[in-house]
């Protein structure tokens, strides 16, 4: 067996499981273990973590044996823009209101796509905001302020 990673996908998936397993075990050390008969809050998560570490190791080890694929490229731009769109929305809806929050969300989301035509995005924003206002504010009576002054 050579020490060459044949399946990058499996290798990194294994590492991910090991990582989550270690977090589970380490964090659970703050909780009392108890015994099998009287389980403490730490008992179940500790065992879950240990099993995850073992399974992760198995997945990573198999990556040396079985042929697999390379991990595809990450679309960082879309990741960042969509993450930002959501996060800013969370802040904006309480602070500057429903309508500006949606506008920011739609523009940032649209920017994550392949084509961004200003006119198109403005029309799309208008349609979506009007629709959401009708459905959520008028129809379902969700109590969001529309703008920062109200």
């Amino acid at each position: 067996m050579s020490l060459k990673i044949k399946s990058q996908e499996d290798f990194w998936a294994g590492i991910m499981f090991i990582g989550f397993g270690i977090i589970a075990v380490v964090v659970s050390r703050d909780y009392p273990m108890g015994s099998a008969m009287r389980m403490g809050p730490g008992y179940f998560p500790t065992w879950l973590g240990i099993i995850m570490i073992l399974m992760g190791s198995a997945v990573s080890a198999m990556a040396f044996k079985y042929e697999g694929e390379k991990v595809g490229k990450f679309a960082w731009k879309a990741l960042l823009l969509l993450g930002l769109a959501f996060s800013i929305f969370a802040w904006a809806i309480d602070n500057i209101g429903f309508i500006p929050a949606l506008f920011i969300l739609i523009v940032l989301s649209a920017a994550a796509g392949q084509q961004f035509r200003v006119k198109e995005v403005l029309i799309l924003s208008a349609v979506l905001i009007a629709g959401s206002w009708g459905l959520f504010i008028k129809g379902l009576e969700l109590p969001f302020p529309l703008f920062w002054w109200r």
């Binding site: 909780y31 403490g40 809050p41 879950l48 099993i51 995850m52």
Partner: peptide
């Protein structure tokens, strides 16, 4: 392995038996 990860995510929150906050 995904099952075990899911079980851990399910545990997040207050433990009903001890009242302890976990994860």
């Amino acid at each position: 392995a995904m099952i075990f990860l899911g079980l851990v995510f399910g545990i997040v929150g207050t433990d009903v038996n001890s009242g302890m906050s976990r994860f």
